[in-house]
Amino acid sequence: MKNWLFLLAAIAFEVVATSSLKSSEGFTKVVPSIVVVIGYCAAFYLLSLTLKSIPVGVAYALWSGLGIVSISLVAWLFYGQKIDVWGMVGMGLIMSGVIVLNLLSKTNAH
C-alpha cells in the first residue's frame, strides 16, 4: 500500500513541476524554476521507490495517464487553456485504460 501512496505522491510532484514550467517562463523566473527542479527530483525519486513492488509498465502507465489528465485540468483551471470535446474524449480513453489496467489486468502487483 505504501508504494501506491509513493506513486500518487510522485504523480502529484510531477504535476506541480510541469505546471510550474509555464510560470518559469523558460527558467527566467527563479521561484517557479526552483519548484520545477525540486518537483521533478521528488517525483522521480518517489517513482523509483514504487518500482520495488509495482511493475515499471504499470507504474509508468498510471504516471503518464493520471499526469496527462491532471495537467490538463490544471492548465484549464489556472491558465485558461480550453479542452475541446475530442480532448475530453481522449482523456476519457486514457482514464479508461488506467482503470482497466488496475482493475482487470493480471499484470498489476496488488
Rank of each mutant, 00 (worst) to 15 (best):
V56D: 11
N102P: 01
M1T: 08
V16C: 11
A12E: 01
L93N: 11
W86N: 12
N108T: 15
M1E: 10
Y60R: 00
I54S: 01
L8V: 07
S20C: 02
P32S: 08
V16I: 15
E14D: 13
L47G: 01
A9W: 03
L62Y: 11
W76V: 03
L46N: 08
V37T: 13
V58L: 03
T50E: 05
A12R: 02
S33T: 11
Y60C: 03
K82D: 12
L73G: 05
V16A: 13
G87N: 02
I38L: 14
A43R: 04
V35T: 07
G87S: 05
V56T: 14
L47H: 09
D84N: 15
S70Y: 03
S20E: 02
V98E: 01
V58I: 14
Y60N: 04
K82L: 12
N102S: 11
L5R: 12
V56P: 06
T107L: 15
E14C: 11
S53C: 04
W4E: 01
W4F: 12
N3K: 14
A59P: 04
A12Y: 01
L21Q: 10
I11R: 06
G80K: 06
I99L: 15
A17Q: 04
W86A: 11
G26F: 09
T107S: 14
G90H: 05
L49I: 02
L77Y: 14
G87Q: 06
M88D: 10
T28K: 14
V35P: 07
F6P: 00
G65W: 06
L21A: 09
S64F: 01
G92A: 09
I38K: 08
S70L: 02
S20W: 07
T50Y: 09
V56N: 11
S72P: 00
M91P: 06
I11E: 05
G97H: 07
D84Y: 07
T50P: 00
N3A: 14
F6M: 08
G90D: 03
V56E: 11
F44H: 03
G92W: 08
F44I: 00
Y60H: 07
A61R: 00
F27K: 09
K29C: 02
I71D: 00
G90K: 10
G80S: 08
L73H: 07
A12P: 00
S105L: 02
V98N: 03
P32R: 10
S53I: 01
I68V: 14
I54N: 08
L8Y: 11
L101H: 02
V35I: 15
Y40Q: 01
F27H: 05
P55M: 03
S24P: 00
V74L: 02
K52R: 15
